[in-house]
Design a protein around this nucleic acid. Structure first.
Lengths: 345, 345
DNA sequence: TACATCGGTGTAAACGCTTACACCGCGCCA
DNA sequence: TGGCGCGGTGTAAGCGTTTACACCGATGTA
C-alpha cells in the first residue's frame, strides 16, 4: 500500500498532527516546517486516505446518484450535468442503477451509508416513503424529475428538495404555437397514465386549448405509452378520425416519430397535410425528414441544478429550506409543423 | 447520525465482535444469539459504515471509472455495461469525467486513493505513463478502448489490462461486403490521424482491398475528423473525383451522414448512384433515409468486459495476468449500401 | 481423571486520519 | 520580574469497523 501520514511525519521529522495541519491548512505551521513536510509528501507521493478521512470527518466528498435505468440520452445527459457541477466543487459522483424491484433499491440505499454526503434520486416510480425509511433522516436528498406524491404542504417544508421539468409550460407553448399557425383542431398523443411527465404535458395541452377558447374534444386525445410503436398506432387512428384534424402534438418525440411513419405510409404529407410536433427534442429529432418540431428539454441543466441544490443542502446543513424548482423548456420549431422558425431556436 | 455497531451490541447484549461476526457470517455464533442481534439490527435500522469498513479491510467495494467526456451515446452505453457487471458483484461505481488537462486528470487520479479497488480508464489520449505515476502500483487498472503505446512486449506482461474494439475486423468486413456488391473502387473517409480507432479502421480498409487484390488508390482516401461537417466536405470532394467511385465507407457514422447530405444535395441517389456505409451503428443510423449500413459496436459489452476483467484482477490480486482483449464488431447491412440484408442483423 | 478439542464469546489492537488539549518558549506589558 | 498571550508543536483520543487472541465451559477421548 501507499504511504500513510505517519511515514510523512517521520520523514519530515514532525508529528502527524503537524502534517495533518498543513494538509488541511488549519492551525499555524512555521513556513520552514511546512516546506519540509511538503517535500516529504512529494517524495513519498503521499495522498491522504479517503476512507480514513471520511471516518472522522463524517463526510465523504461524494454524492450518490440513483437512477432507474442507465439507458439512453436522457440518462447520460443528466449525469453529465451532475458531474459538471460536482467537479466544480471537487466532489465525486457515485452512480447506481437499479431495476424497479423494491427490494433492490432498498439494498442499494442502505449500502450507501457512510459513502455519500447526499443523494440525487431520479425515478418516476420510487415512492418517497421507501426512500425515507431506508435513509438516515439527516441525509440530504434531492428528487430529480420525480413526482412528489401528496400535496405540497404550505408552511411546513416538503420532505425533499425536488427539481422538475416545466412539462406543463412546454406543452402549453407548443399548443399555442400550433394554434398560431392557424390550427384549431389539434390532436394530442398522450403518454402513459402513471407517468408524471405525461400527465403534466396533457394538462398543458388542455390548458392551452382552454386559454385559446378552443373547446377540447375527447376524441382528439389519443392514448399512447411513449413508445414509437404506440405512436404508429395512434397515427393510424388519427387518420380515421372524422373530421380529420390537421395537427398532432405528441407527448414525446418517439411517439411523434412513430406517428410520422404511419402518416407517411398513408401518403399523407408532413407538414403539408399534417402539422406534427413532439416533446423532448431528442437528438434524432433534427435528423428525421422532415425535422421534428419539439419542446427542448435542457437535460444536463436538470442535473446541474439538482447538484447545486444538493450542494446547498449539504453545506448549510441546518438552515436549508427544502423546495421545488422547475426547469424551463423551450420551443424548437423545425419543419414538421410547418411554422416559421422562431428566434427560440 | 445513524446507529453504530456498538449500539447494536448493547441492545443485543453482546460484544461488538459478535455483532461483526453475524454481519460478515464469519466464525461461529449461536443461532439464538444471532437472532437476537438480527432483530436489534432491524430495530435500529443499522447499516454498517462503509468508510470504517474500508479503513480496516482496505477495500472499498467500489470501482472507479475515468472518462474524458461524458457525452453522448457511447459514454452512456459503456457506463450501462459497467454498472450491470458491477451490480452483479455488489460493487459501486464511482465515475469521474475529466477534461484532457493533464493536471486535472492527475488530481482526479490521486483523489481516488482509498476510494476505489480498481479503475477503468477510458481515454484515447491519456498516456499510460502519467497513469502509473499517479497511482499505487498495486491498483488494478483496465484500459478501455484506449491505445496502449509501445509494442506489447512478449513474455513480460503488459503494464495494463486492456479491452479494445475490433476496429480492424469491422472495417475489413464492411469493405469486403461492399466489394461483394460489385464495387471495385471504394472510397474511404478517414478519421483523425491521432485517433487510434480511426487508424485501425483505415488499416482494415487497406487490408481488405489488399486481400481482394484491389489496388489501393491514394485519391480514394479522403481526410476527415469524425465530424458530420468533415463528412459533408468529403462528400463534395468525392463528387469531383475523376473517375467517380460508386461506394464510400466512412470511418464513422457521423461522417457518413454528413456525406449523405452532400450527395443528396448534389442530386446523387443513395444507394442508387452511390453505396454508403458508416461505422459505429449509432442509434440515428437506422432512422435516416436511407437507413445507414454500418458496423455495429457492442458498446455496453465493452463496459461489461472491462468490468469483468477488472473484477478478476481485483479478486486474484496476485496471480492475475494482464492481457489485451478484443471485442468483436458486427456488420449491419441496411439500405444505404444497396446490399441485401445479411443474417447478421 | 486429565487433557485436548471445539463452539461460542469477549478484549483489545489496528486501520489512517482529525482535533481538543497540553505544552513550550518567546516577547510584551504592567 | 511575573504573568499573559501567542505561534508552533506534540500527545492522545476517537471515528466504526475487523480480527487475532484469549477465555470459558462442555464434550469427547485416552
Amino acid at each position: 500500500m501507499s504511504a500513510s501520514i505517519k511515514e510523512v511525519a517521520l520523514k519530515a521529522g514532525v508529528s502527524i498532527a503537524t502534517v495533518s495541519r498543513v494538509l488541511n491548512d488549519k492551525g499555524p505551521v512555521a513556513v520552514e516546517t511546512r516546506q519540509r513536510i511538503l517535500t516529504a509528501i512529494e517524495q513519498l507521493r503521499y495522498v491522504p486516505h479517503g476512507a480514513a478521512r471520511s471516518l472522522i470527518t463524517n463526510q465523504t466528498d461524494t454524492i450518490g446518484v440513483l437512477l432507474p435505468d442507465l439507458y439512453g440520452e436522457f440518462f447520460s445527459e443528466v449525469i453529465r450535468g451532475i458531474d459538471l457541477a460536482a467537479r466544480r466543487s471537487g466532489l465525486h459522483v457515485l452512480i447506481s442503477g437499479f431495476h424497479s424491484d423494491r427490494a433492490e433499491i432498498e439494498a442499494v440505499l442502505r449500502a450507501l451509508r457512510g459513502r455519500v454526503d447526499g443523494l440525487i434520486v431520479l425515478s418516476p416510480d420510487v415512492d418517497a416513503q421507501s426512500l425515507r425509511r431506508n435513509l438516515p433522516e439527516t441525509l440530504p436528498v434531492v428528487l430529480l424529475n420525480t413526482p412528489v406524491e401528496g400535496e405540497p404542504v404550505a408552511g411546513d417544508g416538503a420532505a425533499f428538495d425536488a427539481i422538475n421539468l416545466d412539462n406543463h409550460g412546454g406543452a402549453f407553448a407548443m399548443v399555442r404555437h400550433l394554434a398560431g399557425l392557424g390550427h384549431r383542431r389539434i390532436a394530442f398523443l398522450r403518454g402513459p397514465e402513471e407517468n408524471a411527465d405525461a400527465r403534466e404535458r396533457l394538462r398543458g395541452y388542455r390548458d392551452a386549448l382552454l386559454s385559446l377558447g378552443i373547446a377540447g374534444e375527447e376524441a382528439l386525445e389519443l392514448g399512447g405509452d411513449f413508445s414509437e410503436e404506440s405512436g404508429y398506432r395512434a397515427g393510424q387512428r388519427l387518420l380515421a378520425l372524422e373530421p380529420r384534424p390537421a395537427a398532432v402534438f405528441a407527448a414525446n418525440d418517439s411517439m411523434a416519430i412513430g406517428c410520422l411513419f404511419a402518416l407517411r405510409e398513408a401518403g399523407v404529407q408532413v407538414p403539408g397535410d399534417f402539422a406534427l410536433a413532439g416533446f423532448d427534442d431528442i437528438p434524432i429529432a433534427r435528423y428525421i425528414t422532415p425535422p421534428l418540431s419539439s419542446v427542448h428539454v435542457p437535460i444536463a441543466e436538470l442535473g446541474t441544478r439538482a447538484m447545486e441544490r444538493l450542494l446547498h443542502a449539504v453545506d448549510s446543513k441546518n438552515g436549508h429550506e427544502r423546495r421545488q424548482e422547475t426547469v424551463a423548456t423551450t420551443l424548437v420549431v423545425r419543419g414538421s409543423c410547418g411554422g416559421a422558425a422562431t428566434d427560440l431556436d
